[in-house]
C-alpha cells in the first residue's frame, strides 16, 4: 500500500471536509462490517448544473483510487451506468483529465475531478465517444437525446440521493 496515496487521500478528505462546492458529495465508502470506511474507495454525488437539461439530478459516482494515486488518476464510475456519449457501458467516465496518458496531473483535487465531470454532462466530447446509444442520439436525434436525459434526471432526482447513496 503506497503511503503517498494514503497520505494524499487523508489530505483530500480533510480538504473536502473543510470546503466543497454546493450540491456535491464525496466521502470514503463505509464498510459493511462497521469497522470504518475505505480510504481508497469513495462514493460521490454530482449535481446537474443549473440551467442545463441535467438540472435537478444528483448522480452517484464511485471513485476508486489505486496505490499509484496520485501518479495515476482514480477510476470514476457512474453507478448505475449513465446514458451519456462519454460514459462507457460499464459506467466508467472517459475524460482527458482522468487519463494518465493525457491531461491527468497529480495536482488535480477530488473537487476538480467532480466539477470536471459535472461540466462534461452538458458538454459531451463527440471526438471521443464511449457508448453508441447516447452518442448516436446526441449526434443524429437531439430531441430523443434530450428526452432520455430528462428521464435520467427524473430517476436520479436530487431529493432521493440520500436513499440512493448507500444502495
Amino acid at each position: 500500500m503506497s503511503s503517498l496515496a494514503r497520505t494524499r487521500l487523508n489530505q483530500e478528505r480533510r480538504l473536502w471536509r473543510k470546503d466543497h462546492p454546493r450540491g456535491f458529495h464525496a466521502k470514503p465508502k463505509t464498510k459493511a462490517d462497521g469497522s470504518g470506511s475505505d480510504l481508497f474507495d469513495w462514493v460521490c454525488g454530482i449535481p446537474g448544473k443549473e440551467g442545463t437539461i441535467w438540472e435537478g439530478c444528483c448522480l452517484r459516482l464511485f471513485m476508486q483510487f489505486s496505490s499509484d494515486y496520485p501518479a495515476k488518476p482514480p477510476k470514476c464510475m457512474f453507478s448505475p451506468p449513465l446514458y451519456h456519449p462519454n460514459i462507457y457501458p460499464s459506467g466508467t467516465v472517459c475524460l482527458s483529465i482522468l487519463n494518465a496518458e493525457e491531461s491527468w496531473k497529480p495536482q488535480i483535487h477530488v473537487k476538480q475531478i467532480l466539477q470536471g465531470i459535472q461540466e462534461l454532462l452538458d458538454n459531451p466530447n463527440i471526438e471521443s465517444p464511449a457508448q453508441s446509444p447516447a452518442y448516436r442520439d446526441y449526434v443524429h436525434d437531439r430531441p430523443k437525446y434530450d428526452r432520455l436525459v430528462r428521464e435520467v434526471v427524473r430517476k436520479n432526482h436530487v431529493d432521493t440521493f440520500d436513499q440512493r447513496i448507500n444502495l
Partner: peptide, 24 residues
C-alpha cells in the same frame, strides 16, 4: 485520524468503532 490497511478507523466524523478492540 487513524487508519490501518487502507481502512479509516477513526476520524472526526467516523467514530462508530470506538468501543471495538484493535484485534477485532
Amino acid at each position: 485520524a487513524i487508519e490501518a490497511g487502507g481502512t479509516l478507523l477513526w476520524t472526526g466524523d467516523e467514530t462508530a468503532a470506538r468501543k471495538r478492540t484493535l484485534v477485532d
